[in-house]
Write a protein that binds this DNA or RNA. Sequence first.
DNA 1: GTCTCATAAATTGCATACAATTTATTAAAC
DNA 2: GTTTAATAAATTGTATGCAATTTATGAGAC
Lengths: 227, 227
Amino acid sequence: MDAVPTTKPAIEQIAERITDAVMEHRLPPGIKLVEEKLASAFGVSRTKIRQALTLLAKEGLVTLHANRGAFVTRPSAAEARDLFATRRLVEPEIVRNVIARACEHDLARLRQHLVAESEARQEGDRRRIIRLSGQFHMLLAEVSGNKFIEKLMAELCPLTCLIIALYDAPQTPACPEDEHKLIVDAIAAHDETEAIKLMLHHLEHIECELQLDTEPKRDIHWETLYG
Amino acid sequence: MDAVPTTKPAIEQIAERITDAVMEHRLPPGIKLVEEKLASAFGVSRTKIRQALTLLAKEGLVTLHANRGAFVTRPSAAEARDLFATRRLVEPEIVRNVIARACEHDLARLRQHLVAESEARQEGDRRRIIRLSGQFHMLLAEVSGNKFIEKLMAELCPLTCLIIALYDAPQTPACPEDEHKLIVDAIAAHDETEAIKLMLHHLEHIECELQLDTEPKRDIHWETLYG
DNA sequence: GTCTCATAAATTGCATACAATTTATTAAAC
DNA sequence: GTTTAATAAATTGTATGCAATTTATGAGAC
């Protein structure tokens, strides 16, 4: 009876690293994930890759086609709308719970994350910015203390990154994100109404910048893939 | 380019059958799921079983212990409360969406389900009753049309069955379930306020009957396992 | 050039074999 | 009888090999 699971299972680590790559737009929607390639990249056999892909498929980040393999999902516009509808429902509840339950240590974690975001912004590291932006919402869910909602957000945020990759206007400036800071401030001030209002504005803001009525981007920018 | 995936992947079918067994309380919380046993039961190799178990673990229905195997999850009282909190948040939204979007065919499916429930009830088939009760909420989520919420409910309902198995008072009479019928009626009448009120009452009703303050049941009733 | 068909290469799906680990059993000590 | 240690059995974790399928390649017809 050892104290707490030592390390996270290898399979989940692999899935997590693939998720990060998707969130950073290094793996674009629609790209094929060849098992053998991943296996040698991660230095394991296909068996484990297969299980990691099964996990990611369950999350919806990857789509499996029988006998054809795994592809990074290309969410439809309808799915994008459903996703945002779900986030508009769930994230106010997250905010409520965070205000009700967060201790000083939790708030410190949130502020620390804001610092990391701001650093990435100053360095102009667009990839990291977009991943951290998503992970802010995941952290908020984690702090809110409801495991089911945390798990849901851990799926919705990476998918949101995919949707942005597919439907964002060509040269949208990196989101003007003092918005996250404002939300944390309102939470710290225990101003529930304000925090929820800011969160909903934030979500609407993200969704409105998308071009969900036009066809999603089709081509993969190979030249910038490993930029 | 064939028309629509022919049949559901074998792995998911296996996971689904295990889920049904859990929902019907044939596989009680805490029981160990030995890969070899399942493999021969389903007539496939361990490889597939393993993937099915990975899926179920991701859903939370099964818990994996490194080198020790897979066990049907025993949700804690805190998790039970979080689960119901999540359902109280999500299911009113489901009701709203169903009222807004359901066509006649959808309502027919709901009513058909009510008939199935009522039949199981008349036959006194307790196992089927409890599974169908859970599946009613899954069907409602499916009809509501939001894939993310549908997926969430497809995880929460089986877990709810587990929680009931663990925390229900010894001889609770099978839930007095014209409640489902009342909800469908209110939906059909497009009475949103009433439908939501009924849904919340229904959820509170289920949760209140649980004994979340006492220790969960520990022993497995082998003698009634295959009753 | 491009369309069609045959063939070759690449890739997935699956079972199986074996090492690593845990669990059960037995024997010995107290 | 209970505890401890040693051994055997059962079970999990992982890689690998092979059949089935898909995708790519190339030759020939038009």
